[in-house]
Design a protein around this nucleic acid. Structure first.
Length: 486
RNA sequence: GGCGGCAUAGCCAAGUGGUAAGGCAGAGGUCUGCAAAACCUCCAUCCUCCGGUUCAAAUCCGGAUGCCGCCUCCA
């Protein structure tokens, strides 16, 4: 497949270093708070990438870390009077709750920094030995940025220009303002580990270097994360790792775009910030996942209730089609001999090829989802045609539709629910959001049923109008009335 | 100031040289007591603007305008 590589700024054919095997590392969360939609996007994108690579037959080892010690965690622990372990442990639990809801698969290895301190000390020591890092009298260790000639190659920065804006903060003992911490000497009351430089804790960037090297062969085939990690985090990872080991760190750098609110970056300081659980309290998790995949992973994505509702309607249509196909297939009947017109099979083959092409092209899930709708329409046409739907060829197409939806859904992490159950949940979710009471609806529906039974169509229609004003649509089926939120 | 990205119909959104996917909304139709769902048809002669390259450009190049991101913790 083609993958956009931040390092070269182009799409490149993705070829693993070892045929058939992929080592992939994605920067995980810093466990100091609930996860937000940005985490959801990143997690969904790389989850789909892993699923797709496996779908194409590659054996993927996926490593995603947890940062469980850092300034923000310590700060949070101090604020609430607990420990950094408690803060990290709790937020990692929340992470799993949120991610499980979104259908994110567990990584093969999920290392935590606090269990890899010796490895980080080891890399730091190597860097000092090679002259790429230095310890200060107060027990910090800094990476000597100017000692690494390729510094800036990932983010396209120039060391001289960075220098212009850089300052050494009061109290820092850096040789150069560009230098960054590999090891931070412990301040009173902070969690710390013993090291050759005294008690302290690791800097942020060093963890990924140490943990990826421990759990995967270097260079990594794929290193991923959010766009905001390109600089300085990933730039620093490259500097440390390549300076310490004298070999390339990662071959393909993949970065997902931001989630925005009203065209602006989502951030706590702007107050336009949504956690995953805030969203999934109002929309089903699968709606969020579907929404995130309707845009290409590198594009900025604007989040809003309106956009979510639109995604919700799209997903509802897909599940409704699935429900109809199931219903048709489950109905006991004898199928008439004969195939469908050749064009139908040709269309199906075309859709299958196009879906695959879309995924091959830098994981274009937006286009792939477009082809899912193509399949929905195709099945709908067969269902609509009174002749076709009784044909063995029609049966075959309907079965193929289900198989393909299962296959594609397995890669996208969608469409795996029982359609009837999903639709029922969706209705409940939409009704709750719009303040529609099921009991009230049922009362009106009973009255309408009575009116219809008495052939009082004017009365029946009046009730329909009343329900419509509430945002409720009534559908008359052979089995009776059904309702949904418009 | 430096670096990078984006600008496609009412809205969202694919499309990186061969003549505009898909979704939502909307219009007409089939079906229906009436509806809904589903299906069919329609809905951008044109892709912010101005130049250029080419037989051919939304797609490449140059310029303009607008918006956004990074340069500080951040998915």
């Amino acid at each position: 497949m083609q993958l956009y590589n931040t390092l070269t700024r182009r799409k490149e054919p993705f070829v693993p270093a070892v045929p058939g095997k992929v080592g992939m590392y994605v920067c995980g969360i810093t466990a100091y708070d609930f996860c937000h939609i940005g985490h959801a996007r990143s997690s969904v994108v790389f989850d789909v990438l892993v699923r797709y690579l496996r779908y194409t037959g590659l054996s993927v080892t996926f490593v995603r870390n947890f940062t469980d010690i850092d300034d923000k965690i310590i700060k949070r622990a101090n604020e609430e009077g607990s420990t950094s372990e408690e803060v990290a442990e709790r937020n990692i639990r929340y992470f799993y709750e949120d991610m499980d809801g979104l259908g994110i698969l567990r990584a093969d290895v999920e290392p935590r920094c606090t269990t890899h301190v010796p490895e980080m000390i080891q890399v730091t020591r190597q860097l000092i030995d090679k002259g790429h890092a230095y310890a200060t009298p107060s027990g910090d260790v800094y990476f000597r940025v100017r000692s690494f000639k390729d510094y800036g190659k990932l983010s396209g920065r120039d060391v001289e220009e960075l220098e212009a804006g850089a300052r050494i903060a009061p109290g820092e003992e850096k040789e150069d303002p560009l230098d960054f911490a590999l090891w931070k000497g412990a301040k009173p009351g902070e969690p710390s580990w013993d090291s050759p430089w005294g008690k302290g804790r690791p800097g942020w960037h060093i963890e990924c270097s140490a943990m990826s090297e421990k759990h995967l062969p270097l260079p990594l085939d794929i290193h991923g994360g959010g766009q905001d990690l390109i600089f300085p985090h990933h730039e620093n990872e490259i500097a440390q790792t390549e300076a310490a080991l004298d070999k390339p760190f990662a071959r393909y750098w993949v970065h997902n775009g931001f989630v925005q609110i009203n065209q602006e970056k989502m951030s706590k300081s702007l107050g336009n910030f949504f956690t995953i659980r805030e969203i999934t309290a109002r929309f089903l998790p699968e709606v969020l996942r579907f929404f995130l995949l309707t845009m290409h992973y590198r594009s900025p994505l604007d989040f809003s209730d309106e956009a979510m509702e639109e995604a919700e309607k799209g997903l509802r249509r897909i599940y409704a089609a699935l429900a109809q196909v199931h219903a048709e297939l489950d109905q006991p009947k004898s199928w008439n001999k004969g195939p469908l017109p050749k064009e139908i099979d040709a269309e199906l083959a075309d859709l299958t090829a196009k879906w695959r092409e879309a995924m091959e092209d830098d994981l274009n899930t937006a286009a792939a989802l477009g082809h899912v709708f193509g399949l929905v329409r195709l099945a709908g046409r067969v269902l609509e045609n009174k002749g076709w739907r009784k044909l063995e060829g029609g049966k075959a197409l309907l079965e193929k539709t289900l198989a393909l939806m299962g296959e594609w859904g397995g890669v996208l992490g969608l469409f795996d629910r029982d359609p009837a159950a999903f639709l029922a949940e969706l209705r409940t979710s939409r009704a709750a959001r719009k303040g529609i009471e099921a009991a009230t609806v049922d009362e009106l529906l009973a009255a309408r049923a009575a009116a219809r039974a008495a052939k009082d169509f004017a009365g029946s229609d009046a009730i329909r109008g009343q329900l419509a004003e509430m945002g409720v649509e009534v559908k008359d089926t052979p089995a009776g009335q059904e309702w949904d939120v418009a």
